[in-house]
């Protein structure tokens, strides 16, 4: 294959890829809007609380991943960009998880707050 033909094929391939990206972006925006709609409807459904919370977290995670991999081009970029971002993301997620675990413990409730909660419970 001559160099000119090779370049033309590459350019055609690039054009096709850019054109398909446009459709991917529009479809993704629609998917994100639908997921957001589902999230809003979900909170009004008479379902068990843990199930709704889990579904909301999963749906948010799906939206998050779709945006970073498609809108932010991680899918097409070098793996190093993904690794770099996930280092920050894992550290942030780990911090949130650890703090939530620590402060969810009964011993973490401030003494003053414990007194207030006890008074509230007694008065009800």
């Amino acid at each position: 294959m001559s160099a000119t033909t090779h370049t033309a094929v590459e350019a055609d391939h690039g054009h096709h890829e850019e054109s398909s990206k446009f459709h991917i972006f529009v479809q993704l925006a629609m998917i994100l809007a639908v997921i957001t709609g589902v999230e809003i409807v979900l909170i009004y459904l008479p379902l068990v609380k843990w199930l709704v919370v889990t579904t909301l977290v999963v749906l948010s995670l799906v939206k998050f991943m779709l945006v970073i991999f498609i809108f932010m081009h991680l899918k097409w970029d070098k793996l190093f960009c993904t690794i770099l971002f996930f280092i920050g993301l894992v550290l942030a997620g780990g911090t949130v998880g650890a703090l939530m675990a620590i402060f969810s413990a009964h011993d973490s409730i401030p003494l003053k707050a414990q007194e207030i909660y006890a008074e509230r419970a007694a008065s009800q």
Binding site: F85, G88, L89, T95, V96, M100
Partner: peptide, 17 residues
């Protein structure tokens, strides 16, 4: 953006706590 994740992680966990 990776560093900003940690910044928002701290703010979100403070609110949730």
């Amino acid at each position: 953006l990776a560093s900003d994740c940690m910044f928002f992680g701290a703010l979100i966990s403070t609110h949730l706590i």
